[in-house]
Amino acid sequence: MSALFLQQVLNGLLDGVYYLLIALGLSLIFSLGGIVNLAHGAFYAIGAYLTVVLARFIDFGGALVVAPVGVALIGIVIERFLFRRFYREDPILSLLLTFGLALVAEQTLRIIFGAPPLSFAIPQALRGQVFIGDFIYSFYRTILLAIAVGCIVGLWFLLHRTAFGRVVRAGVQNPDMVGALGISLEPYMAAVAGLGIGLAGLAGVLLAPIYSIHPAMGQEIITPAFVVVVIGGLGSFWGVVVAALLVGLAKGLMVAAGYAQFSTAAIYGLMLLVLLFRPRGLFGERIQRFE
């Protein structure tokens, strides 16, 4: 295996981690509330725009903390006043709602900031490259990766090692039973929406220095993230993780092999394959209400 190929494999896997930040929230909100949040990409875009605005006052480091929290708060408000009305409705209604939200958010960004991309660069202190032998990687991306992995591990602990997580996971499996036990899922749902949407906001902050910041940037990331959720399977944390890495890898390897033009198509091919053999996704659990 050549060094370049190995680099491409690693780079593809790391690429998948960005999708993961978006896909985990998407999956959580879908699993618990049955809402396919088509506006998830919009929150990613809002995170990036907030970063550009905030960085003028509190630097990138400050924006890294404040922007995701701001986006999470927007998420909680939207859950409280919009999502909550649709948990019991036909899913087509919540699809329409979140689709509309995505359009409104994108157009709002366009009205406020204009359609041309906003100028933003990696802070001076985080520039440079890391060399390990012949392997090269951007220093900024190592920081990005560390933060993203930290968040993902934190989320896992929250979901699998705390009382909060137990209720959320029970809610995914059987919300009626949770209700019968006298636990109201409403505050949990708000927290999950805040968490999931906050993670999308965080992805926006982290990618703002290296991606073009434009109103439709959310659309670029929502489709692969959606594919990740489908491949990973509902209700499975690790399913989403593995799927995100696979999607990153599939894209990266297509480029590495010289078939860059098929790199986007490759992830749909992967989805097709997985659904053919495992209709619930790689590690999807059997969830009564989704069957």
């Binding site: 618990l32 509330g33 049955g34 396919v36 088509l38 948990y87 019991r88 409705e89 036909d90 899913p91 087509i92 699809l95 329409l96 689709f99 809610g171 059987n174 919300p175 009626d176 209700g179 109201s184 899922l185 409403e186 749902m189 489709t223 959606f226 489908v230 509902l234 619930r280 009564q288 209400r289 989704f290 069957e291």
Partner: peptide, 20 residues
Amino acid sequence: MIHSTRISRRGTLKSAAALT
């Protein structure tokens, strides 16, 4: 309080595709 409405995964995927 969240009730279990019957949501089929296939139906949801179809709707998502239609909306896109």
